[in-house]
């Protein structure tokens, strides 16, 4: 038996073909772009110049072979690490304070087996704050925060925490929503009250998952410090911006190496701690 195709599917298929054809026509026919131009002699020259700069070919001062710049970079790396730990710490604390009422099965009372009229109100309020917090990118948060505070690693950490609080909150609330309610009902029938249900039923099941998310976000935060650093939030990011502006290419190489080391450290720690939890 032949399946009948939905007219919408057919339509979107032809629309897709049309879109591709017209896009290529626009790029080649109207804008006169050509693929060969991308690989022109000029571009090649710029690229070699830039990469030679990064590697320090033919330069007098090579930052990543210099002891002093290494020690400076090390200080900045520690600063960046501090900023990322502060950021994930702030957002984790606030997430823990808000995550339980933000789960749908807590709001409707199926998880804790108790209903209160104000639960849905609190649920809505927290969920809206999550959306608000993660809808605004870190960079924008950083610009706002630095407008108020002096530049440094604290405002950077606050900006990163503000953005990640919403993400962590949403992810962790969903973990709570996915917990199996059967062991929890049974705890209730063994006489456990609300706090005891949370301690014995909810936290042990959700904490390993929480930890995975927190560590993952920590790693992301560490990389994002470069972005908030651009607007003056301190750490390696700020230095990166300065080196870019002064065309100190070898310093950029050095800073990239530092980032690489940071991410490797974060990777190692999260792997170990997840193994430990299991």
């Amino acid at each position: 038996m032949k399946k009948r195709r939905s007219p919408f599917l057919t339509f979107s298929f032809y629309a897709f073909l049309l879109l591709i054809a017209s896009s290529w026509y626009f790029v080649i026919g109207i804008k006169n772009a050509s693929l060969t131009e991308l690989f022109s002699k000029e571009n090649l020259e710029y690229a070699t110049k830039f990469f030679k700069g990064l590697l320090g070919v033919g330069q007098e001062e090579i930052a990543f072979l210099n002891r002093d710049s290494w020690s400076d970079a090390f200080k900045l790396t520690v600063e960046t690490l501090q900023m990322s730990i502060m950021a994930i710490g702030f957002s984790t604390i606030v997430m823990f304070l808000t995550v339980i009422p933000a789960a749908r099965n807590v709001a409707d009372g199926t998880l804790t087996l108790s209903r209160r009229w104000y639960r849905w109100f609190v649920f809505g309020l927290i969920r809206v704050s999550y959306i608000f917090s993660r809808a605004i990118p870190e960079l924008v948060w950083a610009m706002i925060v630095i407008f108020i505070f002096k530049p440094g690693i604290l405002p950077g950490a606050i900006a990163l925490a503000l953005h990640n609080f919403g993400i962590l909150g949403k992810l962790c609330a969903e973990v709570i929503e996915d917990t199996d309610s059967r062991p929890i009902r049974n705890l209730a029938s063994a006489g456990a009250n609300r706090a005891q249900i949370l301690m014995y039923g909810v936290f042990p099941t959700v904490l390993p998952q929480f930890l995975t998310y927190i560590l993952y976000r920590w790693e992301v935060i560490m990389r994002t410090t470069i972005v908030v650093g651009f607007v003056g939030a301190g750490g390696l990011g700020q230095e990166f911006k300065l080196s870019m502006s002064f065309f100190h290419y070898t310093e950029i190489t050095l800073l990239l190496i530092c980032y690489l080391i940071l991410v490797i450290i974060a990777d190692y720690i999260s792997e170990k701690s997840r193994f430990f939890v299991k």
Partner: peptide
């Protein structure tokens, strides 16, 4: 709940432990 737990205990299929 606490009073009831002293009177009535429940055991179900194996999914009732944490």
């Amino acid at each position: 709940q606490k009073k009831r737990a002293k009177k009535i205990g429940i055991i179900r299929q194996q999914f009732d432990l944490v």
